[in-house]
Nucleic acid binder design. Structure first.
Length: 319
DNA sequence: CGGATTTGACCGGCGC
DNA sequence: GCGCCGGTCAAATCCG
C-alpha cells in the first residue's frame, strides 16, 4: 500500500511564522512594525501607527487563516484516507481472524500471526514479519485478544537510547539481550499500569541499527496524555478547535497543528451559519480530528507511517 | 525523598 | 529432566 498517498510528509508548512507568532517582539519585527514600535517612548505615548499596526495584523491574520485552511484540507484528506484504511483493515482482520482460528499452528510464539495484520497498517513494512523474532508462549486465545502492533522509528546516529516517543508515558521494567539480535531489548509498561495493561518492547532493527522497532501489546484504556489536556473541556465546540498534536518519532520533529481560529472568523460564524461554508467544513474537520485524536492507535499509526516512509527513503538513498 | 531506571535473579514454556 | 530462552520481578541505584 502506498502510504505516500495519504500521509504526505512533505507538508508545505510555513512553520516558523506560526512559532514566532506568540513572541511579541519578534512578531513586531516580522510585521514590519519595528519602526513604529521600537522607537522612543515619545512615539510610544503618541500611538502614531495604530492603523498601520491594525493593517499589518489583519494581513497576518489573513495569512494565518489561509494556512489554517490549507492545513484543514490536508487534515480532511488524511482523515478520509485513515477511515477508509481503517475499514479496510477491519474487513481484512475479520476475514483473516477466521482463517487464523482455523489454521493450527505449532509455532512457539503465535504473536507473529496477529502481527502481520497490524504490520501492514501500522508501518507498511511487510518484510518485518520475516524478521519477526518473536515466538509466543501465550495461549492462542490470549494472543488474539491482545492487539499487537509495530512501529518503526528512525533515531539519530549517535542515539543509543531505546526511547520511542509516542506520546504515552512508559515505565521501563526490564532489558534483555536476545539471541537473534545483539542489540538489547527494552521492556516497557504503560505508566498507568496496572489499570492500563499495555506493554511495549523496543529493540533496534537488526538490519538498520538506527531504526528502533517498537512492539505494542494491548490497547490503552485511557486517553492519550497529550490529548487529555485539551479533551477535558469541549473547547472545540465553544472556543475553537483543539490543537492537533502529532508527536512523531524521537528523531523527527514534533509537528503541532494549531488550528486556532481567528477572531474575525469566529465573528463570521456567529453571524452567518451556512451549509458548505468554510466554517461548516471546519466544524466537520474538527469532528473528524476529534474522533481521530480519541483513537489511541492513530498517533502510533501516523508516527509509524511517517517513520516507515523515512526509513524507506533512507534506504533508497543508500542503495 | 519519591519516582524512574538499571540489572541480576527468577520463572515458566518449549525442545530435545 | 535439563538446558535454553524470552519475559518479569525486585532490590539497588540514579536523579530531579
Amino acid at each position: 500500500m502506498d502510504y505516500s498517498s495519504w500521509v504526505d510528509t512533505s507538508l508545505d508548512l510555513n512553520i516558523n511564522p506560526l512559532r514566532v507568532k506568540s513572541e511579541v517582539p519578534v512578531d513586531a519585527e516580522r510585521f514590519g512594525m519595528a519602526r513604529e514600535l521600537k522607537p522612543t517612548f515619545m512615539d510610544f505615548q503618541t500611538k502614531p501607527s495604530a492603523k498601520e499596526e491594525t493593517g499589518a495584523l489583519v494581513v497576518e491574520l489573513n495569512r494565518v487563516s489561509e494556512e489554517n485552511r490549507k492545513l484543514t484540507e490536508m487534515l480532511t484528506v488524511m482523515c478520509e484516507s485513515y477511515n477508509a484504511l481503517r475499514s479496510q483493515l477491519m474487513d481484512y482482520m475479520s476475514k483473516n481472524g477466521e482463517k487464523e482460528l482455523l489454521a493450527p499452528s505449532k509455532k512457539r510464539k503465535s504473536e507473529s500471526s496477529n502481527n502481520n495484520d497490524n504490520n501492514i497498517v501500522m508501518n507498511g513494512h511487510s518484510e518485518s514479519s520475516s524478521t519477526d523474532e518473536e515466538s509466543s508462549k501465550k495461549p492462542r486465545e490470549e494472543v488474539i485478544k491482545d492487539k499487537i502492533s509495530k512501529a518503526y522509528v528512525r533515531t539519530e546516529a549517535g542515539d543509543t537510547s531505546l526511547i520511542v516517543k509516542d506520546g504515552y508515558q512508559w515505565r521501563k521494567y526490564g532489558q534483555k539481550v536476545t539471541r537473534d539480535n545483539p542489540s538489547p531489548r527494552a521492556y516497557f509498561k504503560c505508566s498507568f499500569a496496572p489499570s492500563c495493561p499495555v506493554k511495549k518492547k523496543v529493540q533496534r532493527s537488526i538490519d538498520d541499527q538506527s531504526v528502533l522497532v517498537a512492539t505494542y501489546e494491548g490497547e490503552h484504556n485511557h486517553p492519550h496524555p497529550s490529548m487529555e489536556a485539551t479533551s477535558g473541556s469541549n473547547r472545540s465546540l465553544t472556543l475553537g478547535p483543539a490543537p492537533c498534536i502529532a508527536s512523531l518519532a524521537s528523531s523527527g520533529p514534533t509537528i503541532t497543528l494549531d488550528l486556532t481560529k481567528s477572531k474575525s472568523r469566529n465573528d463570521d460564524r456567529s453571524s452567518k451559519p451556512r451549509a458548505d461554508t468554510p466554517e461548516v467544513r471546519k466544524f466537520l474537520v474538527e469532528q473528524m480530528a476529534s474522533s481521530l485524536t480519541k483513537d489511541p492507535n492513530f498517533t502510533a499509526a501516523l508516527a509509524s507511517a511517517i517513520s516507515g516512509r523515512m526509513f524507506q527513503q533512507n534506504h533508497s538513498e543508500k542503495w
